[in-house]
Write a protein that binds this DNA or RNA. Structure first.
Lengths: 224, 224
DNA sequence: CGACTTCTGTCACACTGTGACACGAAGATG
DNA sequence: CATCTTCGTGTCACAGTGTGACAGAAGTCG
């Protein structure tokens, strides 16, 4: 790896760290791009060459997460129930975070505190998660061999898995938990969601449109 | 109701309609506030007195939806399982839309097409949904008599219900469906989600933290 | 070193969103 | 109808984000 790329990565992390600290210190909205750029001694114009927007600073984590889940999804056996594969993806992400460097762990925790303090940023994060959800739903649909556009089941599999991740991440029972505590809480939430679903719910094929408009509770066996 | 308020409401709807048409015609990003203001013959400054931002044009629908679900939640019997109450809220929303005026139905369908065309806007919508989710989760937690901050179950109840609504809304199997088709699809998705959950999953009280860090599948009965 | 590529800073600009102020129309009162 | 208050609106000015164009500096390779 050349000097250029190393320097680039270094600058990128410097921007990120400076921004996180400034955000935590004086709030997200009150911090301008000019300040962030000044803190790492670059021009505001250069900032936008490293991060497409001020918002994307808060979203850098998603890229990594989506990549890990996507890779896990690809590595799972084809016949596996889709929700099981997704859960493996979530756990792979937690495992990766457990092995992350202290610097990355610190950034993660700072980001988490930032999201706790600024509900508006949670919105950004969730919005980014929606894109991820679409791509993952397409991947799951491909695995199941159905058309992604018209398959609600694939989308639901991903949506519920992501909801588990999000709820586990968001709900704070402490002010400044360490990484282990956060991961444990996320793991608990995943287990909770696993337990609330009917075994085999994700096995059924394309559900036929029911004739009745709104049957309140017509219980059918989930025979694949 | 005075002349002032009627005029205000009229202007508000005029802005909304003009904006939706412009967005569908030439894209969201390519449409400026100045254009929208020009179309209804007001100054750009006045636009921001009716809508706090350009984004909020796309989110006007959420306020109504959240209100209906919140009201339904309040009207349900206290002992009812929380997810059942949430589903009643969702169905109340669908029922309300079925009875909406042709104008409102038209706006809803335009909005839907807009979201199909612009994935970025889905992010906005989902971000707004996250705020709703927080408030509803607090309401659900209050119903269950637990602390909202530390209760993942309440949050999951809402998250899953909202996921059902979102997935039912998003997945298009037609280019320009009418209102009935969209509502039917949303109803189907709600039914689908109801069927994939274990009966009584939302009855259990605060789950005790499991000692084992990551038991892959320790099935416990959901005894309340 | 010299040629080439890539990154960076400067300048200029469009767009969103907000504060301050003055004008005019809606509403209440004589 | 005259008046006074209130509220909506337009104009002006401004901060902040984000982008395009160009010139110069730094890294890369022969």
């Amino acid at each position: 790896m050349g000097l250029r790329e190393r320097k680039k990565e270094k600058t990128r992390l410097a921007i990120l760290d400076a921004a996180l600290d400034l955000f935590l210190e004086q709030g997200y909205d009150s911090t301008t791009v000019e300040q962030i750029a000044g803190a790492v001694d670059i021009s505001p114009r250069t900032f936008f060459r490293y991060f497409t927007s001020k918002d994307s600073l808060v979203l850098w984590f998603h890229d990594h997460g989506e990549q890990i889940i996507t890779e896990t999804l690809r590595s799972r056996p084809p016949g596996e129930p889709p929700f099981t594969s997704m859960v493996h993806g979530l756990r792979a992400l937690l495992g990766d975070m457990q092995e992350s460097t202290p610097q990355d762990a610190g950034r993660f925790l700072k980001l988490r505190r930032l999201l706790d303090d600024h509900p508006h940023l949670v919105g950004l994060s969730v919005a980014r998660g929606a894109e991820t959800e679409r791509r993952l739903a397409a991947a799951v649909a491909a695995r199941r061999g159905v058309d992604p556009a018209d398959d609600r089941m694939s989308h639901l599999v991903v949506a519920i898995a992501m909801a588990a991740l999000r709820v586990g991440f968001e709900c704070p029972h402490k002010d400044q938990p360490d990484l282990g505590e956060v991961l444990e809480q996320m793991e608990e939430t995943i287990t909770l969601v696993e337990g609330m679903l009917r075994p085999g719910w994700d096995l059924q094929d394309a559900p036929e449109p029911p004739a009745a408009p709104a049957p309140p509770a017509s219980r059918e066996g989930s025979d694949a």
